[in-house]
């Protein structure tokens, strides 16, 4: 018996085998089709309430508002009247710090060993500031005052490294606006972040930006590697 005869005798020749495949393959395709259609809905893109950020919080204005200057002299509210310093300051002041001041109660000096008003204010003319050498300068030139004790920082500021330069990086094309020292630092308590922390704006929380439920140092397992992970508003709120 050759092999041909043997298989045909058993009823499993190439023909018969092919038709058996047909029986198998047809339903297999159908099953696949059904699965593709029903079992695999298109991936849902996680969506979230759009973050609305108040434009006022994205201001490019300086963080601090220095006291207002009129003709180069500060003008302050005292008992709801706007006054120049010199309107009151026609009396002599000694260089000895006054213990319990009746005026200027809100001024608290926290400027390290720089702890005397007359280091900066010209006691003989309150409408001016005074440098260490005794020269008086107008309030508008406040960086010159800070320079006398903070030379390196002032240099950095001049070169645009310290502080901030708004406007144009290319000075030939437009105006560069160097923020002045007192637009960020209160001259009386110059330390910045600890004194005046900011409320952070919302962080990222959908899609490519990762899962907020994942915290650094905690589990590195789980779905956080998958950018198409379904993050919902609820999960964010539970997290709070």
């Amino acid at each position: 018996m050759n092999s041909e005869e043997r298989s045909s005798a058993a009823g499993t020749g190439p023909r018969a085998r092919a038709s058996a495949w047909g029986i198998l393959v047809g339903p297999a395709f159908l099953g696949l089709a059904a699965w593709l259609h029903l079992g695999n809905p298109p991936a849902e893109i996680p969506r979230q309430e759009p973050m609305r950020v108040d434009t006022r919080r994205l201001t490019t204005e300086p963080r601090r508002k220095p006291s207002e200057l009129h003709d180069g002299r500060p003008l302050i509210f005292v008992n709801s009247f706007l006054r120049h310093c010199s309107e009151c300051h026609n009396f002599p002041l000694s260089e000895v710090q006054i213990r319990n001041r009746q005026q200027h109660g809100h001024i608290v000096l926290e400027h390290g060993i720089n702890d005397a008003c007359h280091n900066c204010h010209d006691l003989s003319n309150m409408d001016q500031l005074i440098l260490r050498g005794g020269r008086s300068i107008p309030y508008a030139d406040v960086p010159e005052l800070c320079r006398t004790c903070h030379g390196p920082t002032f240099q950095d500021w001049q070169r645009g490294i310290h502080g901030r330069v708004n406007g144009y990086w290319d000075a030939t094309r437009g105006e560069q606006h160097h923020l002045r020292c007192v637009e960020c630092h209160d001259p009386h308590r110059p330390r910045h972040p600890a004194m005046d922390p900011l409320v952070p704006l919302p962080g990222p929380n959908t899609l490519r930006m990762g899962d907020p439920r994942w915290r650094a140092g905690e589990s590195h397992e789980g779905p956080e590697e998958d950018p198409l992970r379904r993050v919902t508003v609820q999960s964010r709120e539970e997290d709070r």
Partner: peptide, 29 residues
Amino acid sequence: IGCRRCVHACVRENNQSRDPEIQYIRVLE
């Protein structure tokens, strides 16, 4: 100081999608 002002100013300036959210800057703590 991690206030994320830059992140949102960037979203505004560069017309990034608000929903789904796209932000170019990530501030790491």
